[in-house]
């Protein structure tokens, strides 16, 4: 247990081989190795067990582990594929692969849909959407009256809920995103295109450890 020294080939719990992860994702083996350095850093930031806990995820995102954020919570839950409360290395790489510039748009659309499907009912419901907008406003410095929020949600449903049943299903979501491609902006992280160049120190370290 504990943080893994870069001088020993001893991996974090749930470690998966970079060549296997590379074959299943948009990353090369070198990029997976660079992500492993990032993973080790995040997963040992608070609880030194080589697994990313929610507090560590939020610390990495916000530099503050107490910063409550509905979407950081949701993203963490989606990364935690096994639903055991922590993110293992393989989960980290597979989930980040969806955010790769080269990942299929369909994967990005599906991930964003699951993110917004707060209660995991298979649809984005009207009150769910309003709840998300209100939570965001509460967590940020933005202020909008309840009337304005209601109008925005109403307008969004007029445009997105083609069947008019008060719920946005995956097909409706796909059509809505096609008309509003900016909704996928956050689903692509340019950093991932060549993470080994963006973080050369990671590559130096991984060459020592993993070759």
């Amino acid at each position: 247990m504990g943080c893994i020294s870069s001088k020993h080939i001893k991996h974090t719990p749930g470690y998966e081989e970079p060549n296997i992860l590379a074959s299943e994702t948009c990353f090369t083996v070198n990029e997976v190795q660079a992500l492993y350095e990032l993973f080790k850093k995040i997963s040992c930031s608070i609880i030194k067990d080589g697994l990313i806990h929610k507090e560590e995820f939020q610390l990495a995102l916000f530099r503050n582990s107490n910063n409550k954020n509905l979407f950081a919570d949701r993203v963490f839950d989606l990364f935690d594929i096994k639903r055991n409360g922590v993110i293992e290395f393989g989960e980290f790489v597979r989930s980040l692969s969806v955010f790769h510039p080269g990942a299929p748009t369909a994967d990005k659309i599906a991930f964003a849909f699951r993110l917004y499907d707060l209660r995991q009912t298979g649809c984005i419901e009207r009150d769910e959407l309003k709840e998300m907008v209100l939570a965001l406003l509460k967590e940020s410095d933005l202020t909008l009256s309840d009337d304005v929020v209601e109008q925005i949600v109403e307008k969004t449903f007029r445009e997105a809920d083609a069947k008019g049943d008060g719920r946005i299903d995956l097909d409706e979501w796909k059509d809505f995103v096609a008309k509003n491609p900016s909704l996928l902006k956050n689903m692509t992280l340019p950093y991932l295109k060549d993470i080994t160049l963006a973080f050369p120190s990671f590559v130096t370290n991984t060459e020592e450890v993993d070759v």
């Binding site: 990032l38 995040i42 990495a60 995102l61 916000f62 530099r63 954020n69 509905l70 979407f71 950081a72 919570d73 949701r74 993203v75 980040l96 955010f99 993110l115 917004y116 959407l129 309003k130 998300m132 907008v133 965001l136 967590e139 940020s140 933005l142 304005v148 109008q151 925005i152 949600v153 307008k155 969004t156 445009e159 997105a160 809505f176 509003n180 900016s182 909704l183 902006k185 956050n186 992280l189 950093y191 993470i195 963006a198 973080f199």
Partner: peptide, 25 residues
């Protein structure tokens, strides 16, 4: 407003994962 509810939500920092890749100060 021309923005829809999802535009507003996507402005949330929690939906922007770029912080994961930034070195701490």
């Amino acid at each position: 407003s021309q923005m829809n509810a999802f535009d507003i939500i996507s402005m949330s920092t929690g939906f922007d994962l770029s912080g994961l890749f930034e070195e701490p100060d």
